[in-house]
């Protein structure tokens, strides 16, 4: 049994230690807001926070995680009220929405370390794939959320 601390709750997981966190979250904990897009740390759909830092969960074996605090999109706020979620709503960022859990987690992490990011800093931090092409609105929403903070 491996213990994962997800969104403030400890979960006992009966999965092999090499299981990537992505699948542990989706298939053992039952939190499906974190998405599978590539499985090789390319797309960012699986982004979560590990002790507040954005990471791609498809490349994190749960056996290596120890006592870290994991935050998923479901744990970001109880009611989609996080400033980044509000900015996403105001700018109507999502199209299909599949990438947006990961995009939001990446943006929250960026703003935590860089409260007023420049366009260049956004370019560097926001490397998640969106096939629907919402990048322009992601950029605008990050600037808006930064203005709020």
């Amino acid at each position: 049994m491996i213990t994962l601390h997800v969104n403030g709750t400890a979960h006992q997981i009966d999965a092999p230690p090499e299981t990537p966190l992505l699948w542990a979250l989706r298939e053992w904990v039952g939190l499906t807001g974190t998405k599978y897009g590539c499985g090789i740390a390319q797309c960012g759909a699986c982004s979560v926070h590990i002790d507040g830092q954005v990471m791609r969960s498809c490349q994190l074996p749960i056996g290596d995680l120890g006592q870290v605090k994991i935050t998923t999109i479901e744990g970001l706020s109880p009611d989609a009220s996080h400033p980044v979620q509000r900015a996403w709503l105001a700018h109507e960022v999502p199209q299909c929405g599949y990438c947006q859990s990961g995009q939001i987690m990446a943006a929250v992490s960026l703003l935590a370390s860089t409260p007023k990011p420049t366009d260049a800093q956004i370019d560097e931090a926001m490397t998640n794939i969106c096939r629907c092409g919402t990048y322009g609105r992601i950029r605008a929403a990050i600037h808006a959320a930064a203005g709020e903070g």
Partner: peptide
């Protein structure tokens, strides 16, 4: 007008095919 389907795309609750869960489900 604002889209009618944005809210669940902000908190992970929008259910895509990949997220379907059913009793006794195998993959």
């Amino acid at each position: 007008v604002k889209r009618l389907d944005t809210r669940p795309k902000l908190d992970g609750s929008h259910v895509f095919g990949l997220d379907v869960q059913l009793p006794g489900l195998l993959c």
